[in-house]
Design a protein around this nucleic acid. Structure first.
Lengths: 311, 311
DNA sequence: ATAATACATAAGAAATACCTTATGGTAAAC
DNA sequence: GTTTACCATAAGGTATTTCTTATGTATTAT
């Protein structure tokens, strides 16, 4: 059985009118065209669907069944079209993001704003480590990834969208904590708690010290940003971290930013996607959104000391 | 949007394999044929459904939606086919009958047997009066009608399928009730309770008396067969009724058949349908069934005195 | 009886659907 | 680097679909 949507459409009209001529008018067709479609449908099903008694038309039992089927199928088609339209116009859809754990906090703030504009869009946010992020991209299991240091040569495409100021923090009673200016040399005399080798933050810090021909004294390294901050709080050393991860600690005054010369170091946050990936409409919009709005939005958020540090 | 079932079928295969070449093999097509169907589907929806990243294929969000749609639509088509097949093979369907109230009792017995052969077939039986029967046929609201005297010239087609013996009954203590032979003249001396003018039974009775040049003395006429029998039970007169309506009364011995000369008068039960009506498979089978089997079946039923009357 | 109405059928033409083979391009595997 | 696997694209042809106009036929209404 090889029906066509055309046959169903015509049949539905005839079944509704119980009159070929009127159905033909509705469909802007000639009457024989309608007759033929019905005839073909009857040939397909190999059973009469409509019977003519005198001048009136009646649906046979199978005809009634066919009417049900035609209506439901056509309704489904309408539904599909609507769903697709909604997806296109982003009234519906799903945005799959993944972020580096260091970016988690500020990305959630960005997302909160973004989500308000697209109430019917569902969002999934995977907060995970660097290698998992690359894995997700590889498997095409997410639309976009936000991270601090995209790798090279994995068929990835990345774009910086926001400055990522790295600052030096200490516990509030550190002797450098309240100073208005701390020289490079004074910094170099301190010991640091740092991220593991290979981390973007670690690399940036090392580059900074190398460029200024200073020694970078690392006391401990840890693979977790939160652990580093905690170590600094406990006075195990100074820490170099992204300002964007510090909101809570600054509010709670468990850490203080040191007014170190040459700081903050500016790195970037990147949006990363697979090369060649055709973004879904909503992913494209989100991409545009953060590229254009992230800077402004971050300023709107109440990051204390941002300005003073930024001098 | 003007999809084709072909496009959906091909898309479904591709979505399942996530591989054009394998889908093509499954469908016994060349690979470009598959490419083209997908491309056309994407043109119809005006949105990508499948994306190729590296060597792997992925469904887009809309593609996933389309996959759902394709599967459900194709499943519905399978269901439709099955339903139609079942209707054709009479594993399903509906038989709409209407019978004259006088025929009710014996038709139900016929139906009970018939229904056993077609357990999934539902049957509706409308028991109503003559004019309503014609109305039902006119409006094509039933497949077949069973009645005693089909009218002429209503674009109806009728076929006798069973003898309808009319007998004379009286209450059990009537002085003719136990006689082994009652002459025509003795009958003609009696008074009768009869159906209204125009009724088939009435006409047949009148014809009988006219043919034998006897007077037909009618005391009362009633439009309801049951009322007539009741009148006879109460001794208001003799009654001429179809043997097939008497089963209960004979069993209960509230009426007795009189062994009148020339009786029973043989009339017929008819199956009536609209001229030109294409019977549904099940209606056709039922029609054949009663045409061929009704006589035998009626003999199987325990109609006491049938044989003796029939001598 | 005649006209009017409505569906069926036939013939022909245009569009389009659909498939094949041949070929090109790209990513991954060796 | 070469090969392999796999999809895209092009060209070309056939079959099918789908429509129209013209005409036939049956039923109903006048």
């Amino acid at each position: 059985m090889n029906l066509t949507f055309r046959q169903l459409k015509v049949f539905e009209a005839v079944a509704r009118h119980l009159n070929y001529t009127n159905a033909a008018k509705e469909l802007h067709l000639s009457q024989p065209a309608v007759s033929m479609q019905i005839k073909q449908l009857e040939e397909q099903t190999n059973t009469p669907l409509i019977e003519k008694l005198g001048k009136k038309l009646y649906l046979t039992e199978v005809g009634l069944e066919m009417q049900d089927y035609a209506r439901s199928t056509m309704q489904q088609l309408v539904d599909l079209e609507e769903t697709i339209d909604q997806m296109k116009s982003m009234k519906r859809g799903h945005l799959k993001l993944a972020v580096a754990s260091t970016a988690n906090h500020f990305v959630i703030r960005l997302l909160a704003r973004f989500a308000k504009f697209y109430p019917k869009i569902s969002i999934s946010l995977d907060v995970t480590n660097r290698s998992s992020l690359l894995d997700l991209l590889e498997k095409n299991e997410c639309d976009l990834v936000i991270m601090g240091s995209p790798p090279e040569g994995h068929n990835l495409q990345s774009a910086p969208f926001l400055e990522n100021p790295l600052v030096i923090v200490s516990h509030p009673h550190h002797y450098l904590a309240d100073r208005e200016h701390v020289s490079l040399q004074e910094i170099a005399n301190e010991e640091f708690v740092v991220r593991e080798q290979g981390s973007g933050t670690r690399s940036a810090a090392e580059r900074f010290f190398t460029e200024h021909e200073l020694e970078f004294k690392t006391k401990m390294d840890m693979s977790n940003n939160r652990a580093i901050k905690h170590a600094a709080e406990e006075g195990l050393g100074l820490a170099i971290v992204s300002l964007h991860t510090l909101e809570l600690e600054l509010k709670a005054k468990t850490l203080k930013i040191i007014a170190a010369e040459g700081f903050p170091i500016y790195r970037n946050w990147y949006v990363v996607q697979r090369e060649g990936k055709r973004l879904s409409p909503i992913a494209m919009v989100f991409n545009d959104y953060i590229m254009q709005e992230a800077g402004q939005l971050m300023k709107d958020f109440d990051l204390p000391l941002f300005k003073s540090v930024n001098v």
